[in-house]
């Protein structure tokens, strides 16, 4: 995890409840190309649990996730198309 991942897109979704945080994440991923990385920052708690799970269910890869100050950061590699 020491190697710095190149981030292609970033979404700040703190304050957005489920499922809208995932909806915005999914729409952004649809715009991106296969292999590109999206960094999403969501609220801790339910969003931090749900968004990675939903992203994986859609076939994408969660590269890393963890708390970032008071929030939660998820780095997603787009898989497909």
């Amino acid at each position: 995890m020491n190697k710095e991942v190149q981030i292609h897109q970033h979404l700040h979704l703190v304050g957005h409840k489920c499922p809208m945080n995932f909806v915005y994440t999914k729409l952004k991923l649809e715009e991106m190309r296969d292999g590109e990385v999206l960094e999403v920052v969501v609220s801790t708690g339910e969003p931090a649990r749900n968004v990675p799970r939903s992203v994986i269910a859609e076939g994408h890869k969660v590269l890393e996730e963890g708390t970032l100050g008071e929030h939660y950061r998820i780095r997603i590699r787009k898989v497909g198309e």
Binding site: P19, M20, V23, K26, L27, A57, E58
Partner: peptide, 13 residues
């Protein structure tokens, strides 16, 4: 349409 968009078979596309 959020509850449509989250469906894998629909999405934004």
């Amino acid at each position: 349409y959020a509850r449509h968009i989250v469906l894998p078979q629909i999405g934004g596309v």
